[in-house]
Amino acid sequence: MTQAVRFHDQHVDDADPSFLDDVMSGLSARPKALSPKYFYDRRGSALFERICTQPEYYLTRTEEQILAAATAEIAELAGPESLLVELGSGASRKVRLLLEAMQPARYLGVDISREFLLESTRRLAADYPWLEVHAVWADFSRRLSLPQGVSGGRAVAFFPGSSIGNFEPVAAEAFLAGLHRLLPKGSGLLIGVDLIKHRDILEAAYNDAAGVTAAFNLNLLKRLRDELGAELVPAGFRHLAFYHEAASRIEMHLESLREQAIRVGGRDFMLAAGETLHTENSCKYSVEGFQALAQRAGFAPTAVWTDPQALFSVHYLLSEQAVAYSSRLVR
């Protein structure tokens, strides 16, 4: 018999800036910027799922191949009857590979998109009736607590897709330090990290020929208009993505095609022709560079797996600094 999903609301409190607050702050900044977390309304989440199937977007299929080859080792490292915490909930094949290999006692999906979270966790609950499924509606980039009833014992946090790359390195270290404080002692973190490679491969991944990534980026403007009543013309912008080699990151922007204004919150924000709204960074790492960052955050690198072309890496980190460093590099 399928268990009901146990829902926990940690989304906002009075101290959190609202969507409007963040937009007003971002449009007032120099240069202008909008947070990538606002990509993920229901439509944005669905578009991202489509991005993952595009032929240029190697990240998802490569990470999945790595996980499929490493599931036995991952299950051994995680141990039996653990809590599996997925940051950025999904009903994709990646988490299903882990559920089938690890057989955790409980699953906790965390996502900022409430509807997508509920849909994905309900599918998992239906497909795995033996599994106790929890859903936490939260912005895990700000703070997160493990709900009562799921916080005891060993846990494994799963942060796939190289989403850690959306944080600048200093912020990524702070985020990982927060996870280190959150997880019970002896817990693990299984995390996907995109690797530095030739710019042609990187730029193609964020400029797919079908235009799905462009639609995903432009969906931010639709959210401003539909949810905040912003006065703007989405056709006045275009998707722009390029590799910033010195910073080892892909940058995504919305470029203004002409001089125009965005009116929101009772204010007009002027944009010159060619001016951009910076919507996302996706930082790329070497294996050694990411391991050093994880160690500074309190994690002990324990295992790492990569694909034969060294496009992508999956790391298993332990949440106790005292654990001896014994990284295993698998190519």
Rank of each mutant, 00 (worst) to 15 (best):
A174Y: 01
D200A: 14
E203A: 05
R238S: 15
V193N: 06
L228F: 09
F158T: 04
L176Y: 08
P160V: 02
H180R: 13
A205W: 01
R154G: 00
A241I: 00
T213H: 04
G236S: 15
G153F: 03
A235F: 09
A247Y: 10
L190I: 11
A214L: 05
L144G: 08
E231N: 11
A205V: 07
H244F: 14
N217Y: 11
G229S: 10
S162Q: 07
Q148P: 14
L202I: 15
G188R: 11
P184T: 11
D139H: 01
L221Y: 01
H253Y: 07
A171K: 10
L218W: 00
W137V: 03
S187L: 06
I196Y: 08
F216Y: 04
A246S: 15
I164Q: 00
L144S: 04
L146A: 03
D139T: 09
N166R: 08
A214E: 10
A157M: 07
A155I: 02
D139I: 04
E231G: 12
G192D: 07
P169W: 03
G188D: 12
F242R: 12
V193R: 04
E203G: 06
A155L: 06
L218R: 13
V233L: 12
Q148F: 00
A215E: 14
F140H: 02
I164Y: 03
A157L: 14
P147W: 08
R142S: 12
S248H: 15
A204K: 13
I196E: 14
L220Y: 02
E168N: 13
S145H: 12
R223F: 00
A241C: 07
L144A: 08
R154T: 04
A174C: 10
F158W: 03
A241Y: 00
A246V: 13
L220E: 05
F140I: 01
L240W: 10
N207A: 07
E251H: 06
A246E: 15
G229N: 09
L179H: 05
L179Y: 07
G186Y: 03
E203W: 01
R142H: 13
L182V: 05
L146V: 08
Q148C: 03
Y243M: 07
R143V: 06
L228R: 05
I164L: 12
A230N: 12
S187A: 12
S187T: 09
Y206M: 05
E245K: 13
L224R: 00
P234R: 11
G188C: 04
L182C: 08
V212Y: 10
E245Y: 04
R238F: 08
S151W: 03
A215R: 12
F216S: 01
L144F: 08
L183N: 02
L179M: 10
H180P: 06
A210T: 12
A215S: 13
E168V: 11
G188A: 13
A230C: 07
F158N: 02
E245W: 06
V193S: 00
A205Y: 03
I196P: 00
F158D: 02
S187G: 07
F159G: 03
V150G: 05
E255I: 11
A230D: 09
R249V: 07
L224I: 08
Q148D: 15
A157F: 11
D200Q: 13
P147H: 03
S187R: 03
G188W: 06
L176E: 03
L144C: 08
I201N: 14
L221Q: 04
A235Y: 07
H244A: 15
D139Y: 00
E203Q: 10
